[in-house]
């Protein structure tokens, strides 16, 4: 299975780090991975996106034009990337910030109120991890344990207190998927 994911949102929504965390976990699980960011002025305040690939096979093009999944954190990203999801693919919409519904009926659409859940947990910044939790539940692209292993490596020492928060966010995201 090759997971080709587009993650998109405003700069500052943690879209890039959501992708990085996923590829780090994929690498830990011995898979082939790549992470390709959009770059340039739009990174500062505008829309940001990254193309992520996790595969059993060697990664071909690092660009994602036929996405197995798209995670959209804001309205412009939904408008831009809905068309790039392959039929039967998954579209995860951050329903806290996007009031519009998806227009396609040949894909699986999931509405995750990521910001509401994150705010409820006391940290709006963690909405990206809520979305990631939902995505992992749907696709199994990486194991939650591996993600947490990586998170624990990054946030060690004084910062270790945020580890349980991340774990909770993944779980709350996963719980949105029935």
């Amino acid at each position: 299975m090759t997971h080709q994911i587009i993650m998109a949102g405003f700069g500052g929504q943690g879209v890039m780090s959501m992708g990085k965390i996923l590829v780090e976990a994929g690498l830990k699980e011995g898979k082939n991975v790549s992470w390709l960011p959009s770059y340039g002025p739009e990174m500062r305040g505008g829309t940001a996106n990254c193309s992520v690939i996790i595969s059993e096979e060697p990664v071909g093009a690092p660009t994602v034009t036929e996405a197995t999944a798209a995670i959209v954190m804001n309205r412009p990203s939904l408008d831009k990337f809905e068309k790039d999801v392959i039929p039967g693919g998954d579209l995860l919409i951050n329903s806290s910030l996007i009031d519009k519904k998806a227009t396609r009926d040949d894909i699986n659409v999931y509405y995750v109120p990521a910001n509401e859940i994150a705010n409820d947990m006391g940290s709006g910044k963690i909405a990206n991890m809520v979305m990631l939790g939902a995505y992992l539940k749907i696709t199994g692209a990486a194991k939650e344990d591996t993600i947490m292993e990586y998170i624990a490596e990054v946030f060690s020492g004084k910062k270790a207190s945020v580890v349980p928060l991340n774990k909770e966010a993944l779980k709350r995201g996963a719980d949105c998927i029935k």
């Binding site: 590829v23 790549s34 992470w35 390709l36 990664v59």
Partner: peptide, 10 residues
């Protein structure tokens, strides 16, 4: 190209 510079790979 810019992709080689900007992307992350193992």
């Amino acid at each position: 190209d810019g992709m080689i510079g900007q992307m992350m790979e193992p």
